[in-house]
């Protein structure tokens, strides 16, 4: 605003020089009515043509292009959201099957472990039973052998006693020897 004022004030002294050149006596052109008919004629011609072109050609075309674009964009957006929904559903399905598979795997692992531990247990039991049987058999054998040996010991003792007594010059009977042995054992 200040700049405008400065400009106006600065140019004021030059005004007489400017005014001197003005011949004056001109009619104000926009109010010269002799030009009105011609201007109106050409205005009607050009604006009429413009209106015809716009209403018949340009605007329906631009409008249809805009409508088409709007429809295309809308369709693409709908397709995109449908695809996204589908992808989400598939992801969910995948997730679910993954969970299921994991559970399955766990079940299978548990079952396998149970089975193998059961088998091991059974094997152990059978091996133990086998061992026990063998142990019992061995013990029976040992006992039997011991008994046998003990039986032999009695006969040997009888023979030895009889022989010793005979060597000492005595006489003995089997019954007396057995009695003596029993007494010694007793």
């Amino acid at each position: 605003m200040r700049f405008v004022l400065v400009t106006l004030i600065a140019t004021l002294p030059a005004l007489p020089a400017l005014a001197a050149g003005d011949g004056g006596g001109h009619r104000f052109p926009p109010f010269d009515s002799s030009t009105y008919a011609g201007q109106l004629f050409w205005l009607v011609l050009t604006f009429g043509t413009l209106y015809a072109l716009m209403s018949r050609v340009a605007l329906p075309r631009i409008g249809s292009v805009l409508e088409e674009r709007r429809a295309t964009i809308e369709g693409a957006l709908r397709a995109a959201s449908a695809a996204q929904k589908e992808a989400e559903e598939q992801a969910a399905a995948l997730e679910a099957s993954l969970v299921k598979a994991r559970a399955n795997a766990q079940a299978i692992a548990t079952e396998a472990r149970d089975k193998s531990s059961r088998e091991i247990e059974a094997q152990r039991v059978s091996v133990e039973k086998d061992l026990a049987t063998k142990l019992a058999a061995a013990e029976a054998r040992i006992t039997e052998t011991k008994m046998q040996a003990m039986g032999n010991v009695e006969a040997i003792a009888k023979d030895a006693v009889a022989a010793i007594v005979e060597q000492l010059g005595g006489k003995t009977t089997d019954a007396a020897v057995a009695k003596a042995i029993n007494a010694a054992q007793g």
Binding site: A37, G38, F41, R61
Partner: peptide, 30 residues
């Protein structure tokens, strides 16, 4: 009636041409 072709007519026609260029020719490719 005087309907002479004047400088006003020239610029009316230029305005018509410019608008037609933008809207009619511009939208022709759709």
């Amino acid at each position: 009636t005087d309907i002479s072709f004047t400088n006003a007519s020239v610029w009316m026609l230029i305005a018509l041409a410019v608008i037609s260029l933008i809207t009619v020719y511009g939208s022709a490719q759709r």
